[in-house]
């Protein structure tokens, strides 16, 4: 313990800067990195939400988020709107009001918002003919079917029918639950023998 000010030139140990030894990294430390990396990968797989920006906390994947949404959300409606504008609006009009005496309105129609979406699925799949009362008015016209009949008739696919029906059921003041593609598929399978259009009376007998 010297009592004079330090003379930096005197002490040799002052000059010797530390050197680093050559001991090797223990294998277990590298293995630990590997193990934690593996755990991390599993963690990302399970909790990463597929790196989707729409997947938050409680949901594991986008599918679960979609399932949890009672309203399927903007996607289906937007898609349905597009299909409607090309396939349906020529007759039923963009306003959904139809043409009096010719094409029934969809806005406020009890057929559209009713509890039995199977009826409108059938209408879209195989068309409609004969008299039908909609919102107190009588119509008697023919609607063409949209069932896909490969190879010539492309028609509308299940998700497209579901989209356009979802759209129609939520537009113009309509407030009805969406139609799922699975429902359309079920009915399409069920009625695959059908070759002619439906009539109103037949439809009223269908309760799903």
């Amino acid at each position: 313990m010297s009592s004079k000010p330090i003379d930096p030139n005197a002490e040799m140990s002052e000059e010797r800067e530390p050197i680093a030894g050559f001991a090797t990294v223990p294998i277990w430390l590298i293995v630990l990195l590997g193990v934690l990396g593996y755990w991390g990968q599993l963690h990302l797989d399970k909790f990463g939400g597929e790196f989707d920006p729409r997947v938050y906390g409680p949901f594991a994947s986008l599918k679960e988020v979609q399932k949890a949404n009672p309203d399927v959300g903007v996607d289906m409606v937007a898609k349905g709107r597009e299909i409607y504008s090309t396939s349906c609006a020529p007759c039923h009009q963009f306003s959904g009001q139809g043409l009096p005496g010719q094409f029934p309105p969809l806005s406020g129609s009890e057929w559209v918002v009713g509890d039995h979406p199977g009826r409108i699925i059938r209408i879209v799949l195989d068309g409609l003919q004969g008299p039908i009362e909609v919102k107190g008015q009588q119509f008697n016209n023919v609607m063409v079917p949209w069932r896909p009949r490969p190879p010539d008739v492309p028609g509308l696919k299940d998700d497209e029918i579901a989209a356009v029906l979802t759209f129609v059921r939520q537009e113009w003041g309509n407030k009805a639950p969406p139609v799922k593609p699975e429902d359309v598929k079920a009915i399409r399978e069920k009625t695959k023998e059908r070759t002619q259009q439906w009539t109103a009376n037949e439809l009223l007998k269908e309760n799903e």
Binding site: L29, L32, L33, L36, G37, W39, G40, H43, L44, F47, G48, G49, E50, F51, D52, P53, R54, V55, Y56, G57, F59
Partner: peptide, 22 residues
Amino acid sequence: IGAPLPKWIPAVSTMASVLMVV
């Protein structure tokens, strides 16, 4: 985890914090 962010971000962040142990 639980932050108002798409869950991949907390998942990645958590993984990195755990890897910092090494």
